[in-house]
């Protein structure tokens, strides 16, 4: 229902695409017969938690039972997607966050004598470590002398990734991967290792980079009761197919109705 509301062209956003609006609730049908699902093997290799791999594979089997055709496929460039994502996202963030300079928006330091002090101190005091990390990274990849090696290259690889997906979608209707390589970690446990934190985005950022619709569907819990999700990726603007696939699975397994999360105090 939210998708129905936000879909369509927004004249105040030049990057939104002007295509006909669809009623996505009509896509919620139980039917995956003949649906061709590709499973990129790169998302089931090293770095993926054993329990996650197992649960997602069970879901794949379920789809097979429901009448879908499953085939293993390869997405060589998947490894690069994470790097591409962090270069582009940080570059944009470093520029987008420029406006929080203590002049017009955001926190302003009390400690300044010159204009430069306002900029330097407001931003030093106001931003948290992760934001600073991304601004520094983003500034670096856009700097003269590094732009071509990082930002421009990332944009080129992004195009390659998109093309790679296009090729896969000539053969498949939907691609299926885990949503995250591991289950959620506890708050605060990874903040000292940003790289590991970035790696958790491995599966999901790819769709952002390639401009594809994705949906995460719960498909089980691990031994500690932490939820595991699978991700369905569709062709550009083909939200209907992944919604239908997700709905069919959900209605069949009733996973959500049986899942009673316990929250630690």
């Amino acid at each position: 229902m939210l998708l129905n509301l936000i879909a369509g062209h927004d004249e105040k956003d030049s990057t939104s695409v002007d295509i006909e609006k669809k009623d996505y609730t009509k896509a919620l049908k139980k039917d995956v017969k003949g649906l061709k699902i590709g499973v990129p093997k790169e998302y089931f290799g090293e770095g993926i938690n054993e329990e996650v791999r197992e649960k997602v594979k069970e879901a794949i089997k379920k789809y097979e039972e429901l009448g879908a055709t499953i085939e293993e496929c390869s997405l060589d460039i998947a490894d690069e997607a994470l790097a591409v994502y962090y270069i582009i996202a940080c570059a944009e963030a470093s520029s987008n966050l420029g406006r929080f300079d203590g002049i017009r928006y955001g926190y302003r330091t009390k400690n300044f004598k010159t204009l430069k002090d306002i900029y330097r101190n407001s931003r030093s005091e106001g931003f948290g470590p992760e934001v600073k990390r991304r601004i520094i990274l983003g500034t670096y990849v856009l700097s003269s002398g590094y732009y071509d090696a990082y930002y421009k290259k990332a944009q080129k690889v992004r195009t390659l990734i998109r093309k790679e997906f296009e090729k896969l979608f000539e053969k498949y209707d939907v691609l299926l991967t885990p949503t995250s390589p591991t289950v959620a970690y506890e708050i605060g446990t990874k903040s000292n290792n940003p790289l590991e934190m970035y790696l958790a985005d491995l599966c999901t950022v790819t769709v952002n980079i390639a401009g594809l619709p994705g949906i995460s569907v719960p498909c089980g819990v691990n031994s500690k009761g932490m939820p595991i999700g699978m991700q369905l990726i569709g062709k550009p603007f083909d939200e209907e197919t992944i919604l239908r696939a997700a709905y069919t699975y959900e209605q069949d397994t009733k996973f959500r109705e049986n899942y009673k999360p316990e929250f630690k105090k």
Binding site: T15, S143, S144, Y147, Y151
Partner: peptide, 12 residues
């Protein structure tokens, strides 16, 4: 000055 030019992602 290094102006760090890059294509505006908000525009097409």
């Amino acid at each position: 000055q290094d102006y760090r030019y890059f294509p505006d992602p908000d525009l097409v």
